[in-house]
Each structure stands twice: as structure tokens, then as C-alpha cells.
Deep mutational scan, measured.
Amino acid sequence: MDVFMKGLSKAKEGVVAAAEKTKQGVAEAAGKTKEGVLYVGSKTKEGVVHGVATVAEKTKEQVTNVGGAVVTGVTAVAQKTVEGAGSIAAATGFVKKDQLGKNEEGAPQEGILEDMPVDPDNEAYEMPSEEGYQDYEPEA
């Protein structure tokens, strides 16, 4: 019985440690998101679009440190934060509304985080759909 109880105690310690790591990862992701939003706020009209992409990228980098179902929630929060940063930029006159959601080359930025393969159960990952990809044929 002692062996059984000791095993359960060790398992509990492992769960607590994993929860603490997840909590730490979420806190880091939130900190990076805040950094990115402050970065966007300090940019001029020309830099705002690039700044919004930076927020998304920093958040995406930190999301990889967070495991399990938390990833889905962090990704949703990050996307809403990026959308909010863009709205703030438009409201303050840093950028025109028609410039939001495009990178410096004018290509749409939507789907940055949505296409990231995420499995809350950590069982399997699927690649994003290939609808947006084109076949590449090298020139002879």
C-alpha cells in the first residue's frame, strides 16, 4: 500500500510541476504579447503594419512553449490582441483601416495563427491545408 501511495504522490508532483510550467509559459506569452502591443503603439504610420505582424510573430513563438489545451486559448487571445492593436492603430490615425491585415508588401496577414497546427491532446499534428499553395516548377 505504501508503494501505491508513494507512486500516487510522485504522479501528483509531476502534474503540479507540469501545471506550473504551463502557467509560466502562458505568463511569458502574455508578456511578449504586451511587449508587441507597446511596440505597435510606438510606431509611426509606416511601421504600424509591420508592428502588428511582430506582435503576432512574438506571440506565436511563445505559444510553442505552452502545451496542451492552453495553446488553443493563448492563440485565440493573441489573435484578438493583434486585431485590437490594429483597431487602436486605425482609431489613433497611425494607419488607414484599409491597410490593416496586410503586410508591407500588401499581402493579407489573416491566418497567421489560424494555420498553425495545434492539437490540445498532444496526440497528432496535421499540416495546414494546401489550398493556398501553388506547385513550383523550376525553369529549365
Rank of each mutant, 00 (worst) to 15 (best):
V40F: 04
V52Y: 09
L100A: 04
G41V: 10
A53Q: 02
A30Q: 01
A85Y: 03
V63D: 01
L8S: 00
D121M: 07
D98Y: 10
D119P: 14
Q134L: 15
K21Q: 05
E35Y: 04
E105V: 05
E139D: 13
A56I: 08
A27R: 05
G67Y: 06
S87I: 12
E28M: 08
A90F: 13
A56P: 03
V95H: 01
V26L: 11
A107P: 14
M116T: 13
A19K: 04
M127L: 15
E35G: 01
A89L: 04
K96G: 10
G93E: 05
H50P: 06
G41E: 02
V15D: 00
G132S: 03
Y136N: 02
Q109V: 07
G84V: 12
V66E: 01
A124C: 14
E139T: 02
P128N: 10
L113S: 14
K32S: 12
E123P: 15
K58W: 12
A124G: 09
Q99R: 06
F4E: 00
A11I: 02
A27W: 09
A17S: 12
E20H: 08
D2S: 03
V71E: 04
E83H: 02
G86V: 03
M1I: 00
N65M: 09
T33S: 09
F4D: 01
Q62T: 14
A11E: 00
P120S: 08
G47N: 07
A11Q: 00
Y125E: 04
G106I: 06
T64G: 06
E137Y: 13
S87A: 10
Q109M: 03
N103E: 12
E110G: 10
P120N: 09
A107Q: 02
K23S: 02
V70P: 01
K43N: 14
T22D: 00
A30T: 10
G51S: 07
M127Q: 06
Y39N: 14
T81I: 12
A140L: 08
E139V: 13
K58N: 09
D2L: 13
K43V: 14
E105Y: 11
G31P: 01
T75S: 07
Q24T: 05
K10M: 09
T81A: 15
L8I: 04
K23P: 00
M5P: 00
T22Q: 00
E139L: 04
N122H: 08
F94T: 07
N65S: 06
Q79P: 03
A30G: 02
L38V: 07
V71T: 02
D121Y: 14
K45G: 06
K10D: 04
S129A: 13
G68K: 15
S42T: 09
T44R: 02
K96D: 06
V77T: 07
N122I: 03
A78Y: 12
Q24G: 09
V55G: 02
G93I: 15
Q134A: 12
K97T: 03
G86H: 15
Q24A: 08
Q134H: 06
A17G: 12
T59E: 01
Q79K: 13
L100H: 02
G68M: 01
V3R: 15
S87N: 06
V15E: 00
E126Y: 12
K80Y: 04
E61H: 10
L113A: 09
E104C: 01
I88E: 04
V26E: 00
G31R: 02
A124P: 09
E57D: 10
L100S: 04
S87G: 03
E28I: 09
Q79T: 03
E57A: 07
T75D: 07
T81V: 13
G101N: 04
G47K: 12
P138S: 06
E131I: 13
V16F: 12
K21G: 00
E131M: 01
E46P: 14
V82N: 04
N65Y: 02
A124S: 06
V3C: 04
A29G: 02
G93S: 14
E28S: 15
E20T: 13
A69D: 01
V40Y: 12
E126R: 12
K34R: 12
Q24K: 05
G86A: 13
A89H: 07
V70G: 01
Q109T: 13
V95L: 02
Q79G: 06
G41D: 00
V37T: 00
P117H: 10
G51E: 02
A19V: 05
A29S: 06
G84H: 10
V71H: 03
M5C: 04
G36K: 11
V118F: 08
E57N: 08
A11D: 00
G47A: 13
M1F: 00
V37W: 14
N122L: 01
G36T: 14
G101A: 05
E105I: 01
E104S: 13
T33Q: 01
E104T: 07
A56Y: 08
P128F: 10
A69M: 06
V40I: 15
E131F: 07
S129P: 09
Y136A: 14
F94C: 00
I88L: 15
E130F: 09
A56R: 14
N122G: 02
G68H: 06
V95C: 15
E114L: 13
D2I: 01
P120W: 08
K96M: 10
D115M: 11
G36F: 06
E137Q: 11
D121W: 04
G7Q: 04
A30I: 09
N65E: 12
E139M: 11
K34G: 02
V16T: 15
T81L: 06
K10V: 14
I88P: 09
E83Y: 02
K32Q: 07
E126D: 07
A76G: 14
M1R: 00
V48G: 02
E83M: 02
V48K: 01
K102A: 11
V66G: 03
E139F: 15
G36S: 13
K32R: 13
K43I: 15
V66Q: 03
P138R: 05
A27Q: 08
K102E: 13
E46N: 11
K23N: 01
Q79E: 06
A89Q: 10
T33F: 14
H50E: 14
V95W: 10
L8T: 00
V52R: 02
A91N: 14
K32D: 00
K60F: 15
V74T: 04
T92N: 11
A27E: 03
K60L: 14
A69S: 13
T92G: 07
T44C: 15
D135M: 06
P128Q: 15
G84F: 04
D121L: 03
F4A: 00
A53R: 12
Q109F: 09
E110A: 15
V74S: 02
Y39K: 05
E131Q: 11
G31V: 01
K102I: 06
P138D: 05
V118A: 13
K80A: 12
